[in-house]
Design a protein around this nucleic acid. Structure first.
Lengths: 194, 194, 194, 194
DNA sequence: AATGAATGAGAGTTCATTCAT
DNA sequence: AATGAATGAACTCTCATTCAT
């Protein structure tokens, strides 16, 4: 009753402001105002600006990585899993456009502790993908590529979408399809080689 | 005499400090001190901190893109050009490790104008790569992939190196080789298909 | 039932915290927590932090002066009374070390009203001592010194103990003895004078 | 020329405000305003509020102890030296009334470092007085009192003046005379003893 | 009567920018 | 042209006090 989600409101407001302004330019005053609480109230829920940022980032990234992880879990070929990962990724970035910025900015500002946590999360993600690539090679679906580099390439290729400006007639779906096509088939023309 | 490269020294000092501290935490005082000039002097050459940052970023990125552009110019197959691009990229990042951060951080801090300029530069780069991919398809070296997405993938795959933690026995050269192998050959096992 | 000495507990907690932290650094939150009551409850018993401090100081000084006053009341020579005063004073400072700080610090913080009260208390104390000195002179125990200055000197000589660092073999008892010896006998060598 | 004693002005303003308000209540804003400089300017000369306070206290106490030390140096009997010390002390407190407060307040606020320094200064002062007492005993001017306690008593007896409210007809000179009389002759009536 | 969540005034401090020299 | 002393706006954070429950 007394709770009325004030912590959550501050967290959301903080994400808004941090994304709009970046860590250093975001002010506690504006965050509080956006959350509709007094300036001092933010300090009732978070001991400092840095701690608030930490929680915002964790919340954001945990959601992001959990979603991707879920997408590649379960049954299916490597191909199918990659399609699912791309689709989920695109969904997130279409509905939660803020994550794009969250992932691009303020990496230098975040605390050592958070940096470590973030790298761990990313490595865990790559580990999961590496396993999938490994299994794909064993099953004969994939050729003998370097599993970890393939996994790393897969994960980071998601980022292409951040920068690719869709031209007339192009859609996110087509972009995805083309990206996956290149990742799986490569760009080399093998026809003549046979 | 009065020229004595003072502007250049400020620019270099600013790059040092901006990279070390990030935009907001960098101070004009430290930049001036590093450049060996008075604090007021920086304002003789650059009207504001933001303008200085703008020039620093332009200088940095111009160098970066020029080098990549040179690497993929001239004769050779697409494969050879990609190898040259990777090599040049790695050289830059090995000797000028600061660029990594320059490219990863402070994107939110830069002015609208600079953002636009940066995207233009990147698009120009992608255009150049797209042309190369296009020619590669024409010549039969590459299969009929989406030229622009292939170009975009090529460019962004360079970033994998930022995050990939080299394990025992792995080298940047091996990493490059494996990345190019995946990009050209894809991950799919075609053996069974013939 | 509702009484349950809550006021007393707050008062004691406040003394603890004020002595430990000084007026400005003491917080109502910590006082309330130490007293085992809610923060708002302190305001049920004391209208403000300053009022609470006022009451704490009065309580402390009243105790202090009452004890000293009792020590010098009753029968005995001036010498015996001074010994009793010193002994009581040392007892207090040994068991209630906090008083030392209470008397040394935060004089600037206290309200005008309290300052006046404090001076009154001290003057009352000196009046009492002055009477004793006066009687001592009348009885022939003391020579014709200035009664009020002697009284003042007596009272303030108690403070020496605050600053005197006991060396090896020295005790509070010895210090007392030596102080009283000087106060009564003076430092001048009278032997040759006779 | 550019100096124009701004540092000194800040130091003086700080002493004023610290004495008027105490350490915690004194604000840098008011100090700056009193000094007639901008708020930021104080930080050009002193790195922090605490550092400023430190310098203010050192300046004040150094002056105080130097004056007392000078007063008791040179030729003369112990009696004459004590008279000189009292006279100098009274002069200071009559012309620089602020020192009185400087010495009574904020002992709890001062940094560990400054506390140590202050105790050192006081001990040095007592050492000097102890030597004088010692010589006085050797020369036969004084009887065999405890030299260190006598020295300590001498120094602290100066404080009586802070609290003694002069009555009609009483003067600082008379007060001094009476104090010294008691210190040298004691309060005991020796007449009957012979 | 008792509470603690909520608040905002105000603290110390930083630093881009100005400007007299 | 070159400087750095001077500045004040704006930052994070604290805490006495209020008030709905």
């Amino acid at each position: 009753m007394s709770k009325d989600g004030k912590r959550e409101r501050i967290l959301n407001a903080a994400m808004d402001i941090f994304l709009k302004e970046g860590y250093d330019r975001a002010t506690m005053k504006e965050i509080a105002k956006t959350a509709g609480v007094g300036k001092g109230t933010t300090y009732e829920y978070f001991p400092s600006k840095e701690a608030l940022f930490y929680d915002v980032m964790q919340k954001g990234f945990r959601y992001f990585f959990t979603e991707l992880s879920n997408a590649i879990s379960g049954e299916g070929t490597v191909y199918e899993k990659m399609v699912r990962m791309y689709e989920r990724h695109h969904q997130i970035f279409r509905t939660e456009t803020r994550f794009r910025d969250l992932m691009m900015n303020d990496f230098g500002k975040i605390s050592e502790e958070l940096q470590v946590w973030l790298i761990e999360q990313e490595q865990a993600m790559i580990n999961q993908l590496e396993e999938i690539v490994h299994d794909g090679i064993e099953s004969g679906e994939l050729r003998h590529v370097h599993p970890r580099i393939a996994a790393s390439t897969m994960l980071h290729s998601l980022r292409v979408v951040y920068f690719y400006p869709l031209k007339d007639g192009e859609t996110l779906e087509k972009l995805t399809e083309a990206q996956i096509d290149i990742f799986f088939g490569g760009v080399r023309n093998n026809v003549n080689r046979i």
